[in-house]
Design a protein around this nucleic acid. Structure first.
Lengths: 148, 148
DNA sequence: CTATCTGCAAACCGTTTGCAGCGTT
DNA sequence: AACGCTGCAAACGGTTTGCAGATAG
């Protein structure tokens, strides 16, 4: 298990290795994503980021997210309303459970979908590129708050 | 197995029963959804619909889709780009396989997720509201076309 | 010094809302 | 006749693009 600061360092280093420049904006965004237990929306990153680095622009947030996604450091999460949130990439057959209220994320071990995927490819002739297995609900905190 | 025309009739009847009015616009949209093997986007419904009923407006498409969704006659499909497509509702534990190129839809029998959902609720304390299990890929036709 | 990165403004695209008139019931 | 439904136009929210100036290497 790595500490957040060493992960931040690794991400920055990886950006550097791939020929991207290390800027204050990117460091701010990386730190937020590395340390968050939420799946963050671009606006959230923008708002939180400006507390540390007031000159941060929303466009830069989008462009940095694009870079980090290319490098496989983050994953894009699709929300029911069609918006996106972003999260540290995970490894293995982890799937997502998201709080529709606050964006809090839990991982859970789901079934390995590769057998299912193979079976479906064989029976349908499709070339499968991607899969989603996500659960949505209210986290304990939001559940109790919604009962006011 | 019902024919498309009888399904169309049933949908219209159900709209009527629920106090909604039967209009040319709604009949056009219902016919398209009942007979399509694709998951249709609002724009597609708008374009196809105007061939039969040129006065059709895009806003009416959105509002009719809302009604049909309320009645449980169609289901909303979330595409990777954040857009939505709509499809006749299915029953049972069917899941979706979508062609990312043409929108063609296949159903497949997936695992019943209720056990998984229950397990995750117990271990996380979340109150689970919804789940997505969708596969994305290229259908045989689009696969061969993309190899030009 | 050069190429990348940045922030601003504006464009863009899917979707929603306000409203006056039309059409079902 | 009453009220839901319609289409138009405009607003909206998230995302992308064009551009000139700033900055990392």
């Amino acid at each position: 298990m790595k500490t957040d600061s060493s992960t931040t360092y690794e991400w920055i280093k990886q950006l550097q290795t791939c020929g991207y420049r290390v800027t204050a904006a990117r460091q701010t965004i990386v730190e937020l994503l590395v340390s968050s237990t939420h799946a963050l929306s671009p606006i959230e990153i923008y708002d939180l980021g400006r507390k540390e680095y007031p000159a941060l622009g929303l466009v830069t947030v989008y462009r940095t997210l694009e870079r980090l996604d290319e490098l496989g450091l983050i994953q894009r999460v699709h929300m029911p309303d069609g918006c996106h949130r972003y999260l540290r990439a995970t490894q293995g057959h982890q799937h997502l459970l998201l709080c529709t209220c606050c964006g809090q994320v839990e991982m859970f071990e789901g079934d390995d979908l590769s057998k299912l995927t193979q079976r479906v490819e064989d029976t349908t002739g499709y070339h499968i590129q991607d899969h989603w297995l996500q659960l949505f609900g209210l986290c304990p905190r939001c559940t109790s708050q919604s009962r006011q």
